[in-house]
Design a protein around this nucleic acid. Structure first.
Lengths: 127, 127
DNA sequence: CTAAAACCTGACGTTGACGTGAGAGACAAG
DNA sequence: CTTGTCTCTCACGTCAACGTCAGGTTTTAG
């Protein structure tokens, strides 16, 4: 498949696919005319890359991680990297939960029946 | 307290505090010489701002949200905004969990006793 | 009173993941 | 063969949350 089709199929922009290749995350065969050609499996590959981006990993980290995911590499360094990123994601989840809980408190207050916004209520929430 | 003290106390840079003020998130009294002066409560305020930043909110969104947190504003629009951001955070948590689970699978494989990196094992993981 | 430390206002630099043309070549359809 | 669509490679633009440097002022310690 060509780049446009892959972009549509994976739900990303053509620009992103070229960028992934530039970062070494996605390889492409080339036609005689220089156009990129991908196997069907590239769709899943792009989904994986997107998932890691969504988790806040950088291109560089993903580049280091992909060989582990492909199970081609299994060194002490790669295992440490995997655990480090997993731990980072865990912490991120904790932070998000805290923020969500905080918003929930505000929401609960704003939707409560006696939402008169008195000073004491406001101060209680701010604590 | 002055800006340096607040920065140390809240664990952020002086530059960040000036930026928050520039964005309208943090007000400061001024001394006769023009220097910023904050009440003690500013430390908690900054922590709150940081929490929302950590949850991926933009300055603009935080600016819109802070009046709700202060319980000074309670309109249909503000409630919708609160719910929208809460929902966004929820989705973000889901995505992070997916990525984490994915990494866990890779980690489990890389640390399994028979981690010989055979083709079948690699293909099983890639699915 | 004076020197050091902290603070002030601009204003340009940084980083990452793309967006957005420009200009030209490649390819399928009729 | 030609037209339209897709693709190619530069290469500059963007946006957010600051970092950093410059040059000058204010406050504090001694």
């Amino acid at each position: 498949m060509r780049i446009g089709e892959l972009a549509t199929g994976a739900g990303v922009s053509v620009r992103s696919l070229r960028y992934y290749e530039e970062q070494g995350l996605l390889k492409a065969a080339r036609s005689s005319g220089g156009q990129r050609h991908y196997p069907d499996s590239a769709v899943d590959r792009v989904h994986l890359i997107q998932m890691l981006y969504a988790a806040g990993l950088t291109s560089r980290t993903i580049l280091d991680l992909l060989p582990c995911v492909d199970a081609n590499v299994n060194t002490p360094e790669s295992r440490a990297l995997l655990r480090a990123e997993r731990s980072r994601i865990d912490q991120q989840i904790v932070q998000l939960r805290q923020a969500r809980d905080r918003l929930d408190a505000v929401i609960a207050h704003s939707e409560s029946p006696g939402s008169g916004c008195t000073r004491t209520e406001a101060e209680a929430l701010a604590s």
